[in-house]
Design a protein around this nucleic acid. Structure first.
Lengths: 340, 340
DNA sequence: CTTTTTTTCGGAACCGTTTTCGGAATCCTT
DNA sequence: AAGGATTCCGAAAACGGTTCCGAAAAAAAG
């Protein structure tokens, strides 16, 4: 079933069918309706391969999501798709695992899909440094700041990771914690978790406390990884009274590990998460966390991208602020827990 | 950068370049190497649109995953992709939300991608009844049995949902529970949750207990939905001493709701989950559940599909058995909890 | 009733590949 | 050395759409 078949069935030329398909104006209402009726009847759909092959520029946007399992990213992803739907923009979503190079994949996809713009969710800064220059269409990096990357077609919307780290430190400090362990993500210095760590250090330094390397442990975004990291952390730094996990999903592994070691949360050890995923609210204890404004990130990303596409705005970098969401996993330091 | 450019650069015809790209035999090693060198140098990649447009049959398989957020399905999805990688088969993954009609989408995708086979993850039986007949290539439905569907190109691998429901009932019965509430998924009678419910009823009937409609509540695969459902269930059926949630993700909402109502888990109310996702093991209390063999489902699905593609086996329907995974959320009924 | 303009439509080229077919060169045979 | 088989390669035809361009028909203008 091709466009030729439809044309034959309708007794018109292929051009006319194509026009009916794409809503071109120079066609009479009568023939348009006849063609649409036949298309419905045989439920024909045009071949996208042929379409984008011919068209020099497509009209969809690409959404590259790195980390399929992440509940945090899928919340943003859903928001973006919703925004796109409302704006009548087609989006083609691609999920990558944590090891993939999202920029290289995007470059390949550009040749095939000819998108008008790209949104990267959960991207790695170093991949952008390496090969982003090959991408010429407007892009938005969400959940990580690209303000240090000098590309004119790359905007970003993220939280202020440094300030967020500092905020977490201050909150824990205010609760009386002096010995906090940190479970961080990827080891890049300019990535969110690197910036947050710098913020945490800064926050504690204000109170005369310096964070040593023995208080920091790496983890992937898998619960089991955070579990292992916590075990290691407690070995290196047994005097900790609080743990700051840089993602709620990690906080879950942290809490389980602490429980398994016979520590009560938050009585013995406080745990602070990050992101504010739905699950955090249903876990017991409810996870105390810093809530990222996912809906705002989603809508701003779309707005930024469409603005750049229509050339009404130039690349810029928006930084949002997370809000503290009290839960049950962090509490004021108790004297007796120090004694243990 | 097209194949023509490469041909010109290499001083050969486009046919030769195409042959070098696809590893055809009738080309000298010398020219093949020269062409590959140039391809590397200009890092050219062939346009997939043009490729699949021309090719009558592609060689990839389609993986349709319904329910992007589901941790259970992503575990299977990962297993399938791993199996495919090892077999050197390209798979193109597509995620759909719960409302989408996966069969219609697959039909559309077939025209464009020309896959050699399809694996459906988390499909809805009614969608298959409606329009599967339009699909002519080998397919496997995973996580739901298609043994009542008369298609010669459709296999399925799933657990025996009826027996699983019965097993859950027997386990709860053995723990002394007589009044159990049930949180089920989609309302289709021939879908997993419908079959499991029938199994539960059968299991209790053996003990002279009949499950009424007031003990059953629907929920989507969102935690919040299970939370609401549990609240409603407790209103309708306050005497319950145990809840069977047909997915671990629902069990989390159930437990939270029970806790919020001041009930202790499992002291006052036992909760049994289903699936055995990683999270269940990290939750507190650890969720008592029936573990689905995700890796086995993944490998069998691939084996079935490739067998059908190579015409070495015909469509059949495999049913696996889940294994009981003791946790901390279900316990023997206590006398005093009846008194409350 | 002509001429001009507008509307509506079809032919054919083209997008970047793969593939069929046949041609030219090289290699065996005998 | 002549014939056939084999190896290697290129021209051209698809694949299924979109779009440029020109033409026919209808409407408007003169």
């Amino acid at each position: 079933m091709t466009i030729k078949d439809i044309a034959r069935l309708a007794g018109v030329g292929v051009t006319t069918v194509s026009r009916a398909l794409n809503g071109h104006p120079d066609i009479s209402d009568e023939t348009r309706e006849k063609i649409q009726r036949i298309i419905k009847e045989y439920n024909y759909t045009p071949n996208q391969n042929a379409r984008t092959l011919k068209q020099s520029a497509g009209k969809s946007i690409l959404l590259m999501v790195k980390g399929i399992r992440s509940m945090f990213l899928s919340a943003i992803s859903e928001g973006i798709q919703q925004n796109a739907d409302e704006a009548g923009i087609a989006v083609s979503v691609h999920y990558l695992d944590e090891q993939a190079d999202e920029v290289s994949v995007a470059i390949k996809l550009c040749r095939e899909l000819k998108p008008v713009g790209i949104i990267f969710l959960g991207g790695e800064i170093s991949n952008f440094e390496r090969s982003f220059s090959q991408i010429k269409i407007p892009c938005v990096l969400s959940t990580a700041s690209a303000k240090n990357l000098p590309f004119e077609n790359l905007s970003s919307v993220s939280i202020d990771d440094f300030a967020s780290g500092r905020k977490a430190a201050e909150l824990l400090c205010d609760m009386g914690h002096r010995n906090v362990g940190i479970i961080r993500g990827s080891d890049e210095i300019s990535n969110p978790s690197g910036l947050r760590l710098a913020g945490v250090k800064e926050g504690f330094r204000k109170h005369g406390i310096v964070i040593s390397e023995s208080q920091v442990e790496f983890s992937s975004y898998a619960i089991s990884s955070a579990y292992e990291a916590t075990m290691a952390l407690c070995g290196k730094f047994p005097e900790l009274t609080a743990v700051f996990a840089m993602a709620d999903i990690m906080a879950i592994g942290v809490i389980r590990a602490l429980l398994d070691m016979g520590k009560r949360v938050p009585t013995d050890v406080s745990v602070m998460g990050f992101d504010g995923i739905e699950l955090a609210d249903y876990f017991s204890p409810r996870i105390t966390t810093l809530l990222q404004p996912t809906q705002k990130i989603a809508s701003l990303s779309m707005r930024l991208l469409t603005g750049m596409i229509h050339d009404t705005i130039r690349a810029n970098h928006i930084q949002l602020t997370p809000t503290f969401k009290p839960g049950e996993s962090a509490a004021h330091l108790r004297r007796n827990s120090m004694a243990e």
